[in-house]
């Protein structure tokens, strides 16, 4: 497997995914859309971790463990983020990130 695909190919795919996620997080107006962009970025990071584990030190579990912790944090982040979006929607009747600006001086 490791000699069929170079490590660089996997890393470039992960990098592209990260940049697409970054673009989504920065340019979406919908808060759920922003969250989806963040999820894409976290997935890109995970691909990197797993790829480094597989190619550089397949004997150890560090890479996979780190990826599992990232998944756990992503789950927590999604739960809290979406709960906040629902709470904001309840009081502002909008999920547009630009419209929620009462803290702007």
């Amino acid at each position: 497997m490791t000699n069929a695909i170079p490590l660089e190919a996997v890393l470039v795919v992960a990098g592209a995914l990260f940049c697409i996620g970054l673009f989504g997080a920065l340019s979406r107006r919908n808060m759920v859309g922003i969250l989806m962009g963040v999820e894409l970025m976290l997935n890109a990071v995970n691909i990197n971790l797993v790829a480094f584990w597989r190619y550089l030190e397949p004997r150890f579990i560090t890479g996979q463990t780190f990826a599992l912790f990232v998944i756990a944090v992503a789950a927590a982040e999604a739960a809290v983020g979406l709960a906040m979006i629902i709470a904001i929607y309840r009081s502002w009747q909008t999920v547009n990130a630009d419209s929620v600006d009462s803290l702007r001086g």
């Binding site: 989806m36 996979q64 990826a67 599992l68 992503a74 789950a75 979406l82 979006i85």
Partner: peptide, 25 residues
């Protein structure tokens, strides 16, 4: 990449839980 456990966890957590949460929201 031969990380079966992570692949299954990816489906279980991301597809089964996080995306459902997003759809609900």
């Amino acid at each position: 990449l031969q990380a079966e456990f992570l692949a299954v966890v990816q489906v279980l957590i991301y597809v089964g839980a996080i995306s459902i949460l997003i759809l609900f929201a």
